[in-house]
Structures are given as C-alpha cells and as structure tokens.
Computed example of a mutant assay.
Amino acid sequence: MLLPLSGAGTVRRITPTEELVRVPGVVGAVLKIGVGDSVAARRPSDNASGYVRVVGASIEEVERRMREVLGLLSVELGAPSAEPSTAASPGTTPASPTAPPFQRQETTACDASTPCSPSSPCC
C-alpha cells in the first residue's frame, strides 16, 4: 500500500518504519523520504512517502490493517527550503523534486508458442 504524502515542504517528522512494522500483518515498510528532505507536491499517484506490504487471512483483515497503518502514519511538513535536499536519512531514499516525466514502454504480446530465453520479454 502506498503511504500518502500531502503537500510540499521540508519533512520535520515522519513515523519511522520500525513503528509501522509493529502493526500486525505489516511484513515490510519502506520510506522514500526522511527528516530534512524537501518534498514537492505532485500528482496524487506520484505523491507517496513510501509503502508498506500488508498481509492477512481475508480482504477485510488486510483492509483493517491498512487503515491502522494510515492512522499511525504521521508526516509533518514545515516551510519549503530554498534548495531541495538530496541527502536522505539512513535507510531512506530522498524524494526527487524533479522526477523524470512518465515514459511509455511498449509491450510485446506473448503466447504459449513464444520461445522462452533470457532475452525474451515473455519469460
């Protein structure tokens, strides 16, 4: 599940991954930003602070756990700094304020008759 990031500014505080993985069913968490990073507002689909992997015995259980993670997550932003930070906190990757534009990738239609090889896009 993507973790939301609303707004722009300098990250003052963010819930650490250690807290997020304490939620039952959270089997992994990655934060893409850290304290001191400057983040820019982007399209909602590109504006994530990170993600978590959540498992459960049913869809309802997974949804309940996801809501628990969202309730626990806190990202506090301050005023934007003049220069975006390129350094990240240990274990994080900085947000890229100038992410490259989306590039369409062509796909190849594959079927059972397509031979499998290391260079084949079908394998």
Rank of each mutant, 00 (worst) to 15 (best):
P121N: 08
G71E: 01
C116L: 12
L2H: 12
F102P: 00
R43G: 09
A79C: 00
V30I: 10
V39C: 08
Y51C: 07
R64D: 15
A82K: 08
S85E: 07
P24G: 05
G91V: 12
S113R: 12
E68M: 07
A8L: 02
M66Q: 15
A29M: 08
V62S: 01
S89I: 10
C122M: 06
L3G: 03
S81C: 09
A40Y: 00
R42A: 12
P90L: 08
I59E: 14
P24T: 06
I33V: 15
P84N: 10
T108E: 11
V26M: 04
R43L: 15
K32Q: 11
L3N: 01
S119Y: 07
P101T: 09
V55G: 09
S81V: 09
V75I: 11
A8R: 11
K32V: 03
V21M: 02
R22N: 05
R67D: 10
E18R: 14
L20M: 11
A87Q: 13
G34L: 07
K32L: 15
G78A: 09
I14K: 01
L20P: 01
S117W: 03
G78Q: 02
L5N: 01
G7H: 03
A57M: 11
R13P: 00
R12T: 12
T98K: 11
E76I: 13
G50H: 12
Q105Y: 11
I33G: 10
P94T: 00
V21F: 11
K32I: 02
T114L: 05
G9H: 04
T98L: 10
K32D: 11
A82G: 05
D37S: 12
V69Q: 00
A82I: 03
T93S: 13
